[in-house]
Design a binder for these strands. Structure first.
Lengths: 207, 207
DNA sequence: ACACAATATGACCGATCGGTCGTTTTTATT
DNA sequence: AATAAAAACGACCGATCGGTCATATTGTGT
């Protein structure tokens, strides 16, 4: 059933969500002002309420949109690397590239959303937590693939925590301190860790 | 010169700053509403402007206050450990205790402040960046003491980044996912790393 | 005793917030 | 062609925001 109205609506929807995620990566989902968002997306403020009942509905969809963007920019490119320790490191490098390339003006939507909602119970926190669980679960799964192939000796959950922590920290360190140094530290930390845990370090670059 | 007015003013000042740092650890320095802060501190809203010209001045002093709190709760206790690798790990454990004990309702003032201001240029960002530089500089200095004593073989700046990243991540992971697991991961990550880098791992606990 | 400075207050201001409402324009269905 | 629904808008609402101001109270130095 071709529904042109829906099609047109979806275009506005996508444009607004793109602006929303970009703005939220800077000011947070709460700092998202519907007025400024309207200006950024080139629509009128009241036009929102044809698509979302209130701000919270928009926030929930923004989380969804950001999750899809993360899959597209990080998980998909890293899937080019063969399963095992090389794909684990490819995930880390794809993440750092996401930050370094400035895909989002604020660096990382989920990093901001986590910090903002970690002590604000409600549907948005739940949705953010679920997105983080999905991502960390995938990271852990990728590590486990490497363990099963004999390319890593590690506790997948423990190593996933470490990779996540060392990657996330690059966001603030690159913006608040020296950018290149922060990314170099983030890359080296995971590379050294993986090489030390791997019986086959030759699969990874030396530096 | 005993000045009772100043003394009384200082008490209000301290009470307000304490509330401000606690509230900001949850909602951020921008989410700090002067109205709600007044209520939390038990004074009238306009009473602020006898102590601070505007909100920004309060934010700057809140950063200062939080920095002193960090020294008192993290750096001072860890100084009980002997210089070297044991003090490095003591710093990490003191930090995790700060988070676990819920000294601040939001977990970590500086973590929130970093994420909030890393792309908002101005005096507050500069002050936050300076506080983070001071802390990371101290962390690096402590690592270097261990290196100089032959208790660690590491690049101090690199290792300081890793310890900082692995510690900070415990804030969101403990609140958004499982608390005890997050702290266990954060502790084990640094412990394993230090033991691997140390010619004298017997100085550290085994687990 | 007196003048002055610090502390603190309540009333009030313009701006912006999230959100509502009535209306117009566009488009798919019948 | 008629109709119903979706999309989008401008005007407007009460609440809250950061901040000002005139004023009352209190403690300090001379």
């Amino acid at each position: 059933m071709a529904d042109g109205r829906r099609v047109r609506g979806q275009r506005s929807r996508e444009a607004i969500l793109g602006s929303a995620v970009a703005l939220a990566s800077v000011d947070g989902l709460g700092g998202l002002s519907l007025g400024r968002l309207a200006e950024a997306a080139g629509v009128s403020k009241s036009g929102f309420f044809a698509h979302w009942r209130d701000k919270q509905e928009l926030q929930l969809d923004a989380v969804e949109w950001a999750a899809r963007q993360w899959v597209e920019h990080v998980i998909v490119p890293a899937s080019a690397a063969p399963k095992g320790v090389r794909r684990v490191f490819a995930l880390h490098e794809a993440r750092l590239a996401f930050y370094r390339d400035g895909v989002l003006p604020g660096g990382c939507f989920f990093f901001v959303a986590q910090v903002e909602f970690d002590d604000k119970p409600g549907p948005v926190k739940d949705r953010v937590a679920q997105a983080m669980n999905d991502w960390l679960g995938y990271l852990e799964h990728t590590v486990r693939e490497a363990v099963d192939r004999g390319e890593l000796r590690a506790d997948p959950a423990q190593l996933a925590y470490e990779i996540e922590a060392l990657g996330e920290a690059a966001v603030t360190h690159s913006r608040l301190r020296d950018g290149p140094t922060a990314f170099a530290h983030a890359r080296r930390a995971v590379l050294d860790r993986l090489r030390a845990l791997s019986p086959t370090p030759e699969l990874l670059p030396e530096d």
